[in-house]
Design a binder for these strands. Structure first.
Lengths: 233, 233, 233, 233
DNA sequence: TATGAATGAGTGTTCATTCAT
DNA sequence: AATGAATGAACACTCATTCAT
């Protein structure tokens, strides 16, 4: 669509519009890439919401960070809350995709368990936005998680993987029986998550820089040991 | 406790105190009371910030909840962030005060350890605002915690208590040696905290109501067991 | 002057301009017009700040007077102080533009000097906002003037004009030599400015309506005479 | 008056009051000095309003500066505008009192005229608050000056002094006749006032520090010369 | 698909002023 | 004469969202 606007000084007088002749369009049209724009918005939003939460995050800032017109956020996502929902969904699917790549089924039970703990630790360490996003989700009572069907489909598979892992360990005689895979799963998440999400208050309370390289390595070992002792026969 | 204060205009002259006779208490009248107003604001703010975070919490709502004029918040606390700081400080001191009352030093090491886990669990369960406040503090990189000197004074004592507890267990031959009290402490907090703070997302992800009475009891037992196995010789 | 702009979406393609045919002008329609909105805000702000000063002027009132949404003031100017800065800059440039049109260089020195005094008087008389704006600027120690580069560029030219005027008068033998053009300039401004800016207190103090037509004419003559006597050989 | 207040914890229960027994009063009573308090408020207010104008000046700040309870301002002056009125009145009377001390009547006309110009210059230079106060008064169309009767009584005397001075000069043959004493008076004020009140914008516009010692001396000489030439026969 | 301009309801904060003692 | 606590209206400024092109 092209426009012809007639203005008197700075005041617009009238305006007509019509179809763009092909020859002009060829030269004038800027490359527009819907999927890339959507992705840029989503990435920017993840950073913004991770940094300031849903309440503190600003639509304007997201638009700036994504280098898109603010209007595009509404075009692609509908509104702030929907954008947040999309960010959360993507974050939850991302970690699940990474977990899938672990292929725990093909490892020995003990090694698989250590691997799972180490993976969780490293994922949280390298994707700290995930932690604050999960906190934000829970601050709002998971209202933004309920909507998403994709997540519900992905997660049972994961619990099942841990269940199989426990069963294989019991069969091999290295894990004790009767451990609830969900409780275990929560505990693995907990010991990694808490240390990192509360690293700021922790560093003050315990008067110790929890993010020093050596401290981090220590913590991972401590957590692996905690889970080993929890599951062993 | 009652007080009699003799003042000349506004200048205090002297003050005595004693037990309140019932007959007078009956007639107690609400008048201007700075300390009570301050407290009402602080309580309302704790609820508001716990519910919506620092970014989402509204000064107007705090004033409404506290039934005070909005201006009073600025009169007593200076501003929103300072109010949040005051809320956080009080929350951290509250849990510390409760911990102190446990008197772990007078218990056998094994019982003391179970007690500590159970106390942590129950405190979080009954004071869920504490969890969201801590999350908010960390979302803002503990900026609001740094200022407070009172907190820094209180906490080393707690770590020391756990340290003594571990030492006593080692001496008795029931705990293994070489456990870092801070790592242990973080783990105890983690396994209780994570389950409760992420109860909403957890209930969806695991398709299980994590807040059912029986589930809660189960989790406490699971956590006690986790720590027992972690520390035992 | 009219413009025809061809745009593809929002991207300008080409633009031509020419004289406006009357028939089209008649149908002129108000549409979205950034420049006009900006101008309306600036005009309203000038009136508001001139009336009540920077401290007393209200952003809300400016928005009302300009018939724009209050948000637009922040959109176009950033904030109250920046708006004031813009108002001040425009006011200073306006008087300079008017001074330029005088073309003192083409007049005989004596006439040019009288003209300059009369111009200053009449400009202040017809643009009383300028006087209060200058007062406001100085109340705030010219903080809002320092920023503007455009003003600094414009003013040396004016001093130079007066300098040339004095030189021509000296050469012609009608003005005495050794007069500092800046001191002269300040005095010309002073005798006109003071009478008008302090017209309210003056009318009370001297118990005389300083703004009566005859009084005003008298004052202009008095001022012309003052400067004549000051510069004459 | 003394008070006995009974409080339960922090909540006040009841309160009685009575006359202070003399023996206690002797020791407890703080010196209270109404006139001194009033003066402190007035001084603080003059500084505040001179600095920020009526719109920008804050009652709180005045109270702080005066080290009195804010309530006292209302007790002594009624309100902000009344306080401003009082400040303005005092400022106008102060300069009149100083002018009176000049005793121009006992000097030769030429010397008296120079003295008047120099006095005006020096008074403005040493009391810059007077200049901004006058500006503020006029910004508000002298609304705060109209009320005051004391001023109206004082000022005619001054005009009369200048009138006599002119007459004496004419009689002596050193001043020309026909000069309006009010116009002269305004001009004397103007050339001193404008330079100083607009010192900030002037220093930028003319790219010259108008407040340098030498510049100030120059200006005074320039002004004396201006008036000499204006009045001389 | 993309954009600059516009909006109304809020958001933290401050103001001059008054109350009760 | 003096004070600390309290108030409501207003303040500058920001928010998520929509309009018109």
């Amino acid at each position: 669509m092209w426009y012809v606007r007639l203005t008197l000084g700075a005041s617009p007088i009238f305006c007509v519009r019509g179809e763009m002749p092909v020859s002009v369009a060829r030269e004038a049209v800027r490359v527009r890439d819907a999927e890339a724009t959507r992705k840029r918005i989503l990435d920017a939003a993840k950073r913004e919401f991770a940094l300031l939460g849903l309440g503190g995050g600003r639509v304007d800032t997201v638009a700036e960070k994504a280098k898109v017109n603010k209007r595009m956020i509404y075009y692609y996502f509908g509104g702030k809350e929907d954008l947040f929902t999309a960010v959360v969904e993507e974050a939850y699917l991302d970690i699940r995709r990474a977990e899938k790549r672990l292929d725990l089924d093909s490892m020995e039970p003990e090694a698989a368990m250590d691997t799972l703990v180490a993976f969780t630790w490293n994922y949280y360490l390298k994707n700290p936005e995930f932690l604050t996003l999960v906190n934000s989700v829970n601050l709002h009572k998971a209202r933004h998680l309920k909507i998403s069907g994709a997540i519900k489909k992905e997660y049972p598979g994961f619990v099942h993987t841990v269940e199989r892992l426990l069963e294989r360990g019991v069969a091999k005689g290295v894990f004790r029986s009767g451990i609830d895979p969900i409780q275990l799963n929560i505990t693995i998440a907990a010991i990694n998550y808490y240390y990192l999400t509360n690293r700021f208050s922790g560093s003050i309370i315990y008067d110790r820089d929890l993010m020093e390289k050596q401290r981090l390595d220590e913590r991972l070992q401590f957590n692996i040991e905690t889970i080993r002792r929890l599951v062993r026969a």
